[in-house]
Nucleic acid binder design. Structure first.
Length: 291
DNA sequence: GAGTCGTGGGA
DNA sequence: TTCCCAAGACT
């Protein structure tokens, strides 16, 4: 089996099975791609779609977002989760206005220098918005590579050098095929080669998947850490931000106290939110999203 | 490098 | 019901 055959299999499958997502359309701006990538960090597509549409209508350019208070971004973020992403998106838009003539930078170094942009997001924007030939490695891609090539059910907890090297070696030579390969492998991981209950019968790589050919051996790596939720600071922070987000005017300390009874934890979280820039304390002992 | 950081839906 | 996890970034 050649790598070229692998490319053809994925590209043919993608041409037929791809979802029609607005940020993939040819008329979508780099800014639209950028916003989608930040929103999609750890958040499912179906939940991002309506919020993305709203943001694009309201803030069609980086300058539009940079021109409003950061708290407006947090409010419009809704319930996507990890609201610091909204803050960083606003900061990134500001940086684009100040350093890049109001445009999304088109190279990896400048992209990754933006707030909230790491290795993955920089590569994704470079590849999908500007057609640059660079490996895009997210959790979906890592899983497809782990199964189809390495022959294991799940990739390591964090990205390894071997995985990066593998992704680079699999990238097609041409820019056009590289772009389709990146989005195609990602789509395959999202729709078919899923974390739980993979739909191997629908997979274009079924006949050559190393994991399937090995008899689908069970995962035997280190146990992945499950994230606690009930009673954690994250839950408390979420409630406080939700309270401010859903209030049209600043809220009193008494209102904040009602969302969590443990005073020590509540105050710690409130202080943390202020330090993060997600909450703004006012002189009259009320709180609001940053103005 | 391990921990932290939201939210909601499906298995 | 409980658990897992969904296009990560940052410290």
């Amino acid at each position: 089996m050649s790598v070229s055959d692998l490319h053809d299999a994925v590209l043919d499958w993608y041409a037929e099975a791809q979802r029609d997502l607005p940020w993939r359309r040819p008329d979508c701006s780099p800014w639209g791609v950028f916003v989608s990538e930040v929103m999609l960090q750890q958040t499912p597509v179906v939940r991002v779609l309506p919020v993305w549409e709203e943001w694009m209508a309201r803030w069609p350019t980086p300058a539009d977002l940079a021109g409003v208070a950061s708290g407006e971004a947090v409010r419009a973020w809704g319930r996507l989760g990890y609201p610091r992403r909204a803050l960083r998106l606003h900061a990134a838009a500001t940086a684009m206005v100040e350093r890049h003539d109001g445009e999304v930078p088109s190279n990896l170094v400048d992209l990754q220098a933006l707030p909230g942009v790491g290795t993955y997001t920089a590569a994704a924007v470079a590849a999908f918005a500007f057609g640059i030939r660079v490996p895009v490695v997210d959790t979906n891609v890592r899983r497809v590579h782990a199964r189809a090539v390495t022959g294991v059910e799940h990739p390591a907890p964090s990205l390894t050098r071997a995985e990066s090297d593998l992704a680079a070696s699999l990238l097609p030579d041409s820019e056009s095929e590289a772009r389709l390969w990146n989005v195609g492998v990602m789509e395959l991981g999202a729709l078919v080669c899923t974390a739980r209950g993979p739909r191997c019968d629908d997979c274009p790589l079924l006949g050559r998947c190393a994991w399937v050919l090995a008899g689908r051996p069970a995962y035997d790596g280190p146990p992945r850490r499950g994230q606690k939720w009930a009673g954690t600071d994250r839950q408390v922070r979420g409630r406080i931000v939700q309270l401010l987000r859903e209030s049209d005017e600043p809220v009193s300390r008494a209102e904040v106290e009602k969302v969590w009874s443990d005073e020590i934890q509540r105050e710690r979280c409130l202080d943390g939110l202020v330090a993060d820039g997600l909450v703004e304390p006012m002189s009259d002992n009320r709180f609001r999203l940053p103005a």
